[in-house]
Write a protein that binds this DNA or RNA. Sequence first.
DNA 1: ACTAGTATTGAGAGCGCTCCCAATGTATCT
DNA 2: AGATACATTGGGAGCGCTCTCAATACTAGT
Lengths: 339, 339
Amino acid sequence: MALTLEQIAKLAGVSRSTVSRVVNDDPNVRDEVRQRVWKVIRETGYQPHAAARSLVTRRTQIIGVIIPESVTTLFTDPFFSLLLAGITAACNENRYHLMLSLFNSPEGSEAIYQRVLRSAYLDGVIVASATSDDPLIPRLLRDSIPFVLVGRHPDKRVTYVDVDNVSGARMATEHLLRLGHKRIATVTGPMSMLSAQDRLTGYKMALEAHGLPVDSSLIAEGDYREGGGVAAVRRLLPASPTAIFVASDVMAVGVLKALRHEGREVPGDIAITSFDDLPVATAVQPALTTVRQPIDDLGRTAVQLLLDLIHRPPDATSVPQRLVLPTELVVRGSCGARR
Amino acid sequence: MALTLEQIAKLAGVSRSTVSRVVNDDPNVRDEVRQRVWKVIRETGYQPHAAARSLVTRRTQIIGVIIPESVTTLFTDPFFSLLLAGITAACNENRYHLMLSLFNSPEGSEAIYQRVLRSAYLDGVIVASATSDDPLIPRLLRDSIPFVLVGRHPDKRVTYVDVDNVSGARMATEHLLRLGHKRIATVTGPMSMLSAQDRLTGYKMALEAHGLPVDSSLIAEGDYREGGGVAAVRRLLPASPTAIFVASDVMAVGVLKALRHEGREVPGDIAITSFDDLPVATAVQPALTTVRQPIDDLGRTAVQLLLDLIHRPPDATSVPQRLVLPTELVVRGSCGARR
DNA sequence: ACTAGTATTGAGAGCGCTCCCAATGTATCT
DNA sequence: AGATACATTGGGAGCGCTCTCAATACTAGT
């Protein structure tokens, strides 16, 4: 049914090769011929067969986005939607296609890895928020598949783009310090994730810079989900904090709920700052003072880095790129700085 | 670099054809040989080349999810994440891959359509929440590309799966009627979307069933976004409603904010019910009484319908499936039924 | 006009796979 | 034993494209 190069060639009165040249913008075609061929292509709505082309070029123009098993439960976090939106926009602009894989299939990670990555379907992949020990990373390295991480990684060979979690968390904590708080607690993300570790580091740095001790009874590990925020509050309240830096907006929603349930006022009794600046930050009452991260940029940058990797001549042994995007504090009601 | 069938064949001491049979579970292979071949495949980590296979089978094992231009601005709505999660899970279970396309590229809808759909990349597509007049649908029909809509469509030839928006909206409105409200307003979705029309229909049906007039000053069109909710409140308040049925949770968040800003208590002064039951419904205060729709099911069902369509022998002229999934009302604080 | 050089075009091969068909091997029946 | 049926295997062709290389057409230089 669908047209082939050969048929277009016949219709335009040229050879298959010439049509191929026209389609691929090869300059070695006489202008008059080029026009004639384009005309036929336009009129017939011809589109090259992707698989046939891939078979010979070894390129599919598809990049994958992998949500590793460890974070698939977080997939409905708006962070991922926003990230995906940024990635998709960048893909469209570069005429690439995007394949989405959540690695939480019952068939197991190894099977899905084989199926998705070894079948030559993808030119490269973006891995979103892996834990630092995710087996995926050494696997990708071993198979020399071009990939970019969203979120930093200690391995020197990986290219990544991250936001400045440390200084963001530090800003959020220092803001509370400036407001006079001395007993500042924190609800962290899952410590298996580097972003969670970094945000905790920022929190500690802020305290230390102000000569305050780091008190472990003021630190509760969460999971980046609402329930984790609720649970953390229960563990934190006995240490009577006057403020809490919550490592994500979603958890902050849980913290808000739990505090309300315990009869504490925010920001009156306890001030809150958090991290992400997702839409939900302004949906809750009081609105969250939170660290804004440029999620859209994160996605777009990841695509750009990946395409650079894909198009780099194989002999070029440049060092992996490692980009860190800045964050900023958005002050709203939950910290008590404003009325 | 990557292994080919031919190489596996040599290693296993059989022919290319036999290896192909083994890989494709053809029964016509002696058991002893089958074992031997599998062993080699396992040891080498061989994976068939997807493009080569697609070239001859005319199948890619990839299905597309299209977010039409008209709703790309809504993409960050958690509804889409949830839908995607359901679709992905079903894809994984069926060993299909998923390609995500947001039709909001600067190159224009027609160009992206050509690029994505005419290049034989996709075995079929799922179109999420199109408007009823989206040019995409006649286009897909014309090109006889197997597709399933999420959200109903009047054309007799399209297969779709939808949730029962009418009866959901009717339940939400009747709940308010049962609580004694007589002046019930509604904030609709964008009227270009059938789901918005259906929810409005449900609202009207409830009023009429209770012998109440439909008062146009109590109806404000929104856009399924938070801002739309805020704006709608301003238009609705002069008509002094005692309750509002808001056609989506996200807009309800905006309504809540606007009412708070106007000094109205929810549910004390004005009761609210809404639609979706997204995570945000329990994040706000008061938690939303809302209509739950089975989003995950919606995604899984769409995949199932699409795969049926793809695998149906071309001569089979069965009628398009049209499924409507049930909804249920979840009562929380915003309607005032509970303290 | 003739040659060398350059621009343009076409034909062939081959990417890795599946599918068809012929060839071989094995079991069963008269 | 010979013929028949069936199970199993291998080889060839071809999917639609790109890429290399040779062939042709045209240009300028002498």
